[in-house]
Structure formats: C-alpha cells, structure tokens
Amino acid sequence: MAARETIEIIALDDDWNLLGRIDGKGDWPGIVKALLRMDSAWLVIEQQRADGPSPMPRREDIRLSRTVAHRLRPMEMKIADHVILSGKGRFSFRQAGLL
C-alpha cells in the first residue's frame, strides 16, 4: 500500500447501520477488540488513495479482503464490502462480484 493511502474499518450491525469507524492502520488485536465492543456483525474496508491513477484493486488489496474475511469467520462477522476510493473514482468489491 502506498504511503499516501488511508484505510478504515467501518463497523455495521446486522441491518448494515453504522456503528463506528476504526483506523485500519492499527494492530489487528485492537481492531478486533473495537469490533467486538461495538457488537459488529458486518464491516466495510474503506481505502482512500490520494489522487491515484485508478481505484482498481491491486493484488495486495484482494489479499487483504481474503485475509480479513478468513480471520472474521470464527467471530461470525462478515465483510459487507471493500471499497477503494481515489480522485478518479470508486471501486466496490461487492458490485464487482468479488465478495
């Protein structure tokens, strides 16, 4: 991931209502504790790329989604979407059929 990128985890309830936002650059145990504290059932991975050429996912973005989904399974949480935003547009893993 480029230095000018940010990543946030958006916690959602069963009805996909916003519960809160977590800095995705934190450590995994801290992120999990925050998700559990919010009683999150779903989450969105949101990446912001600073004026990148394209919001298209890179290999490491796909790997991130797969790894997070795998780690969430034992906690009965799921990924609602992985969204990449850039100055040139938006890419949704869900809309592209990747989730």
Rank of each mutant, 00 (worst) to 15 (best):
D51F: 13
D27E: 15
K88W: 02
P53M: 02
Q95Y: 02
K78S: 15
E46K: 14
E46S: 14
K33Y: 00
L19Y: 05
D61S: 05
E60H: 14
K78Q: 15
G52D: 11
A34Q: 10
I84T: 07
K25E: 15
R4E: 11
G30L: 02
L43W: 06
I31P: 00
K33A: 09
A80S: 09
E8C: 07
A80H: 11
P74Y: 06
Q48I: 10
S40Y: 06
M56L: 13
I10M: 10
A96C: 00
L12F: 11
R66N: 09
L98D: 01
L12R: 01
D23Q: 11
M56F: 04
I10V: 14
M1T: 02
R63G: 04
R21V: 13
I79M: 14
V68L: 01
P74F: 05
P57R: 01
S65G: 10
T67N: 09
G30K: 02
M75H: 15
D27G: 08
M56G: 12
G30T: 04
Q48P: 00
D61L: 04
S92I: 11
D13V: 04
V68T: 03
I84A: 03
E5P: 00
D14Q: 13
A69N: 01
S54T: 13
W28V: 08
Q47E: 14
P53L: 03
L99R: 08
I45Y: 09
I79A: 07
Q95I: 02
R73N: 04
I10S: 05
A50F: 14
I45Q: 08
R66S: 06
S86P: 02
P29A: 06
R63V: 09
I62P: 05
S40L: 01
L98F: 11
L99N: 10
S65T: 04
R49L: 13
Q48N: 14
F93A: 12
G24I: 14
S54E: 11
L19Q: 10
F93M: 10
E60S: 12
R66F: 00
G24M: 14
Q48Y: 10
K78W: 13
S86N: 01
R4C: 08
I9N: 00
